[in-house]
């Protein structure tokens, strides 16, 4: 509608400005992956292998080859993500394909086994593959649900700003605690010495910090402030208010760290399991051909 004299816009009319990796190109890779699974299942049912379906039949080899090629290609996402080469590629499209083709491996891999599982290196490879896929499923779930919460929680603050805010309160606490007697000052010092990143993995992932020195300090100080009327002049009241603010800021920071951790933690399973899978897969393939 705007009557612009200069060059027309670069984007074609009607092209969607943005959709996420799951909806990419109108679910193109979901459709392709579904078709692949459908073909695999249909042929599994139609092909008659004697005595029964197994990994060593021609059908089993076909599925195995497709599977291993897919796994190798899926692994390449890590390279694609980090290699900023020129050219018209989109990491979003790669992610989309990675997700849906990765899920299709459940079908392809399982059909490849012919449902023959046991305590051997072959089933180890299968189990590792399922572990990778399951961790990936967890990843998809958090990617789809957590970004909104992350955005809401940070309220335009960056992580650095949150830490800076905590430090600013700490400085005020330090000044405000000067007139306090020894015992009370020790409590405040404990809060000051507390590492906002400390508490270990469980605390990080749950967002619960039972040994939080700030909470402990505040609870202890409340014993003193509890029976006194608020005069607005007591140094302890100021310290109490500052501890309250620090608690609120810590809560936001911890929520932020929790969400970030959840968005990343699954990769610590997904990626190492992938490499374990590649190793097991090598053993699986070598052993199959060795004992041909």
């Amino acid at each position: 509608m705007a009557t612009r004299a200069s060059s027309p816009t670069r984007r074609a009319k009607g092209e969607t400005l943005h959709d996420g990796f799951l909806r990419h190109a109108n679910f193109r890779w979901l459709k392709i992956a579904t078709l692949l699974c459908f073909l695999a299942i249909a042929s599994y049912l139609m092909v008659d292998i004697t005595p029964r379906h197994n990994g060593g039949s021609w059908y089993g080899y076909t599925m195995g080859t497709i599977g291993v090629l897919l796994i190798l290609w899926l692994t390449l996402l890590g390279l694609r993500k980090r290699a900023m080469t020129r050219g018209r590629w989109s990491l979003k499209a790669w992610t989309s394909a990675h997700v849906y083709l990765g899920l299709s491996l459940i079908v392809i891999g399982t059909l490849h086994t012919g449902f023959q599982l046991g305590w051997n290196v072959h089933t180890l490879a299968y189990a590792l593959m399922m572990l990778v896929i399951l961790s990936g499923l967890f990843g998809i779930t958090v990617y789809a649900t957590l970004p909104t919460a992350l955005s809401n929680n940070r309220a335009e603050m960056t992580q650095v700003q949150m830490l800076e805010a905590v430090r600013a309160i700490d400085r005020q606490l330090h000044d405000a605690a000067q007139p306090l007697p020894q015992g009370q000052a020790a409590l405040v010092r404990q809060s000051l010495g507390d590492d906002p990143f400390g508490g270990g993995l469980i605390a990080r992932l749950t967002g619960r910090y039972p040994r939080c020195a700030t909470a402990a300090a505040q609870a202890a100080l409340r014993h003193w402030t509890g029976d006194h009327a608020d005069t607005g002049k007591e140094p302890l009241e100021k310290v109490d208010a500052l501890l309250e603010r620090k608690q609120a800021m810590l809560a936001r920071l911890r929520r932020h760290l929790k969400l970030k951790a959840l968005l990343e933690i699954w990769l610590t399973v997904h990626v190492p399991a992938t490499f374990a899978l590649l190793a097991a897969l090598t053993a699986h393939i070598v052993s199959v051909f060795f004992y041909w």
Binding site: H18, D19, G20, F21, H24, K81, M84, R86, G87, R88, W89, S90, L91, K92, W94, T95, Y143, P147
Partner: peptide, 13 residues
């Protein structure tokens, strides 16, 4: 070639 890297490299769109 390919345009802004920030957009190309976004994994989720």
């Amino acid at each position: 070639d390919g345009g802004p890297a920030c957009v190309r490299a976004c994994p989720t769109g």
